[in-house]
Design a protein around this nucleic acid. Structure first.
Length: 549
RNA sequence: GGCCCGUUGGUCAAGCGGUUAAGACACCGGCCUCUCACGCCGGUAACACGGGUUCGAUUCCCGUACGGGUCACCA
């Protein structure tokens, strides 16, 4: 077989040589040890936790080592591509603060190793595809979907491995005449397959940076390199791009592990150096009694949009993912509560090998901590932005008087033990709605020791000549005095010693006030609340409560 | 089914031949000059199983079980 002639028949338009292509991608001029990583999503319009998970790893690895983190768009599957898919990707990464040093941008490319959209690189893959044909390492295949399905059936019946290999590789040894005939028949359309010399009896050894040493049978499948539209499969694109773009570390999910032998083989066939691989553990969820990989179709909580809608902060999601990514992160965070995330020394060795359950409880806990560390100003900005998007009615109230809203958010904020009651912005309305008269819809639930007439008596006594106390201490002294005057125990300790001697205690009295003012039994510091509301509105609320009794 | 990866409390996990087997979340109890949210103190709870190797295995090896992933002209 004259492979050179075959190559020319198959790729008549390809005139470039591999050397010419290579010349455009010189080794990167980076300091020793600098890592080059990439995020390589498909523009499916769907960004999920797994994307973020990997991207954080990529970004940290690159930027912690003085390297390069770039974005490559894997748009080789036109069927799955959606309008605006690239915009979505860019938007998410900018939202999450994971800056690319180079790669695809909205209006083109940024960087010297482009183009960064695989479809725009089609010609390049063909150069290398042609070159492989010249070496006898690749060949055209004309099998139809039906033929492939028939092969599969046969294999299933014979209990043999699936795939295009050995005697099932129908077009592996076509003669030049046969190829020409098929080519004429197909109108020049073919699929380029790799001619594997692998033998499953032999094993390849391999080291993954997180999984450690591994051994696989060699790949004997003649996998597809170029699809019938001339666009490469993931496998070929990965090998060509990561070589040319000088990627040093490939971070991807462990679902790629089974195809690793293919990639190793391809790199060898091309005569290129293998990048380092980091196969990350998968994000799982509990389904019924067992764990399973989070699924795009079944699990809404896999989508990043879900968290944005709920009002999780960007910081808390990154923070949580980091706890899954590096086992010593939490320890570090406890020791460095205020340090920026990027100050954490990310370490591949601290990455776990087995899939982790995505734990919403833990996320919420982290979220509360993150939100509690925000200043009132920051909290207001984030909340207002969220509401603007997901609850415009609430947004209108919030932004009507920013200073007022900030003051609400400032209650219990700051200091050593900040309040931690808001985990996500979606909860904020329920937390602070009573501050807005428009939203104030009390369902008076009086404390057990002071219902009905008792509650009314307390309210009437307190509201009678109500004036805003000077400070929290004065306020509570007043409540105590009121409690005592009505026969309630003003001292909790005394009350606990003889609970039967009193109708209730000062706690009950203040609870009545709280219920009247806020419409609920739980609230932040009542004095602060009243101060913000102002004497008039507080009074009005007392009267409203009295009227209801 | 073949191949691959994994298995320490409910969850995330530390551990890397000898430990009272950390810590975090969740849960439960107590304390915290008004509730809640915090905070503090305490508690329940784990090395999948069976063989080896070894003076000694959570740790090393083999097997079993279980879980997961993957077997496309998708990535």
């Amino acid at each position: 077989m004259d492979y050179k002639a075959l190559a020319d028949i198959l790729f008549p338009h390809v005139t470039q040589t591999p050397e010419e292509v290579e010349a455009r991608y010189p080794a990167r001029d980076l300091p020793e040890g600098a890592k080059v990583t990439r995020m390589a999503p498909s523009p499916t319009g769907f960004m999920h936790l797994g994307n973020l998970y990997g991207a954080i790893t990529d970004e940290r690895l690159a930027h912690q080592s003085g390297g390069v983190f770039y974005l490559r768009i894997e748009d080789t599957d036109q069927k799955r591509e959606v309008e605006g898919g690239v915009e979505k990707i860019l938007e998410v990464f900018s939202e999450y603060g994971l800056p690319f040093d180079e790669g695809a941008t909205l209006d083109g490319d940024n960087g010297a190793y482009g183009p960064y959209r695989q479809r725009q690189r089609a010609g390049m893959y063909q150069v290398f595809g042609k070159w492989l044909v010249e070496q006898g390492k690749a060949y055209p295949c004309f099998c139809s979907e039906e033929e492939l399905a028939a092969i599969r059936e046969k294999q299933a019946a014979a209990k043999e491995n699936f795939g295009y290999y050995g005697k099932y590789a129908l077009h592996r040894d076509l003669s030049m005449e046969e190829i020409e005939a098929k080519l004429a028949q197909s109108g020049g359309v073919f699929v380029l397959r790799f001619r594997s010399e692998g033998d499953t009896e032999r094993r390849v050894k391999f080291t993954d940076l997180v999984k450690g040493n591994m051994e696989f049978p060699e790949n004997d499948q003649d996998i597809v390199l170029l699809k019938s539209d001339g666009i490469p499969t993931y496998h070929f694109a990965h090998v060509v791009d990561d070589h040319l773009m000088r990627t040093t570390h490939v971070v991807r999910g462990e679902e790629w592990l089974p195809t690793l032998p293919v990639h190793v083989q391809l790199f060898q066939a091309m005569g290129w150096r293998l990048p380092k691989y980091i196969h990350t553990a998968q994000l799982m969820k509990m389904d019924g009694g067992s764990k399973r990989k989070l699924s795009k179709r079944k699990d809404p909580e896999l989508a990043l949009d879900y968290y944005r809608e709920q009002g999780y902060t960007v910081a808390c999601l990154k923070e949580y993912l980091m706890t899954l990514l590096n086992s010593n992160f939490e320890e570090w965070r406890i020791a460095n509560p205020a340090a920026p995330l990027d100050a954490f020394p990310f370490n591949v060795k601290k990455m776990g090998v087995s899939g982790s359950l995505f734990d919403l409880d833990k996320l919420i806990d982290i979220s509360k901590n993150v939100v509690s560390r925000l200043t009132a100003e920051e909290a207001y900005d984030l909340l207002a932005a969220w509401a603007q998007r997901y609850d415009t009615e609430f947004a209108a109230l919030l932004t009507r008087d920013p200073a007022y809203s900030k003051a609400i958010l400032a209650i219990g904020r700051g200091g050593k033990k900040p309040r931690k009651d808001i985990a996500v912005w979606g909860e904020a309305k329920a937390y602070m709605d009573f501050f807005f008269d428009e939203l104030f819809q009390p369902e008076y639930a009086w404390p057990e020791n002071a219902t009905g007439a008792a509650a009314k008596q307390i309210l009437e006594a307190y509201a009678g000549d109500f004036a805003l106390p000077e400070d929290s201490g004065a306020w509570f002294d007043g409540v105590k005095a009121l409690a005592a005057s009505l026969g309630y125990a003003a001292d909790m300790k005394l009350y606990k010693q003889n609970p039967t001697e009193y109708p209730g205690n000062v706690g009950d009295v203040s609870m009545v006030l709280r219920v009247a003012v806020t419409g609920r039994q739980n609230s932040p510091d009542l004095f602060e609340v009243m101060k913000l509301l102002g004497a008039d509105r507080v009074k009005a609320r007392f009267n409203r409560a009295i009227a209801s009794l």
